[in-house]
Structure formats: structure tokens, C-alpha cells
């Protein structure tokens, strides 16, 4: 702490991802110019988050309670679970409003080269859920990159002997893009996973 309140805030803001000193400076002066009624709730929200947020006992989503609102929701289908790497991925899938099943957050992805082994993720907990529950399908929605793919492969191999259907979200082209700018691997995958019209 420098003792200068503005300097302190700038220093703290630079700890956020993607925020350099210049952006931190801009944000600090913006916050200073905001009315108290708008600026203070930001600080309060951060304090509340750090005090109350924890991982759901069942799916490891972020929640204030022991079990998150999705796991508690009686309206959701309990025979399907969607596996994601991070809670932020869950939010994006929820925004689609198309999926009405449960989730399981792994809190990371396998990476042999970085020493991220299965015991460092919530994979054993997923296996236990599948063993205990009445699940008919596990949808693996890990990122479509090497770490996500390795994780998907591992989970699939571990779950298939349990007699549950394991599916992977589709690969393909982003909507609004042009085919001519797509790379060969993405395009090949989208041709392999084509749908009948």
C-alpha cells in the first residue's frame, strides 16, 4: 500500500486479468467520478462474493448455498449431466436456454505437460454421481482444444464401462463466419459431423 488511495486502487486493479496499468488508471478515475450510490455497490458485491461464494457440493458450480439453484431446481431433467471445465462455461451454456439438464464442473482440464492429472480435477466426483444417480447421458462440453479433448477422451473411457451414454458437443463453424477463413481442421470436423437436412 502506498498510502495514496488512488494509487492503491490502481495497483489492486492491475491484478485483474487483461488489465494493465493504463486501463487500471482509467478505471480508477472512472470509479472516482461515479456517484457513491453506483460505486459502493461494486465494492460491496466483491466483499459479498468473497464472503459467501463457494462450490456446490454436487456439481461444483459457484453458489451461496450448500447446493446450487440448478441442482435444487425440480424442473430440470435429472437423467442428463453436462460436463464443463469452469463455472463460466456453465453460464454460457445456460444462456442458450436450450439445455435443461444438470451440470458438473471439473474446475480445470487435464494437461499431461503441466502435470494436471485426473486427481486434481473433479472427475472422481463425476464418476460417483454417475454411479449413484439415474443418469442416462453425460454430455462432455469441455473446450475444443488439446486439453479439453484429452479430458473428454479420459472421461469417456472411464464412464463408458458404467453403461451410460457419453456424448461430445459438436465441432463446427461459428455462425456469422465465412467458410473461406476457416482452418482445415475445423472445416474437416464440420464436414465429418454434418447433419441431414
Amino acid at each position: 500500500m502506498s498510502g495514496n488511495v488512488v494509487e492503491d486502487l490502481i495497483h489492486e486493479l492491475t491484478k485483474l486479468p487483461g488489465i494493465g496499468r493504463k486501463s487500471a488508471q482509467r478505471l480508477a478515475f472512472f470509479i472516482m467520478g461515479m456517484p457513491d450510490s453506483e460505486a459502493l455497490p461494486i465494492a460491496e458485491a466483491i466483499v459479498k462474493l468473497k464472503e459467501k461464494a463457494r462450490f456446490c457440493r454436487q456439481c461444483f458450480n459457484i453458489t451461496e448455498d450448500e447446493v446450487c439453484s440448478i441442482c435444487r431446481d425440480p424442473g430440470r431433467s435429472r437423467d442428463r449431466v453436462c460436463v464443463v471445465e469452469e463455472p463460466s462455461n456453465l453460464i454460457v451454456i445456460e444462456n442458450t436456454k436450450i439445455y435443461k439438464g444438470l451440470y458438473h464442473v471439473l474446475l480445470g482440464a487435464l494437461s499431461p505437460i503441466d502435470g494436471i492429472t485426473p486427481d486434481r480435477l473433479k472427475i472422481n466426483e463425476l464418476v460417483e454421481r454417475v454411479k449413484q444417480g439415474s443418469m442416462s447421458e453425460v454430455i462432455i462440453a469441455t473446450n475444443p482444444n488439446t486439453k479439453g479433448e484429452t479430458t473428454a477422451q479420459y472421461i469417456s473411457q472411464i464412464l463408458k464401462p458404467l453403461g451410460v451414454r457419453v456424448s461430445r458437443i459438436a465441432y463446427g463453424l461459428p455462425i456469422g463466419g465465412d467458410i473461406e477463413f476457416a482452418d482445415e481442421v475445423t472445416l474437416a470436423k464440420s464436414i465429418e459431423g454434418r447433419n441431414e437436412m
Binding site: P112, I113, T146, T150, Q153, Y154
Partner: peptide, 11 residues
């Protein structure tokens, strides 16, 4: 990359 055993060994 799509073969679990291969990617572990190549890593």
C-alpha cells in the same frame, strides 16, 4: 490429439 494414449506419450 484425438487419441488419448498418443497425446499422453507425445506430451
Amino acid at each position: 490429439r484425438e487419441n488419448y494414449h498418443d497425446i499422453v506419450h507425445v506430451s
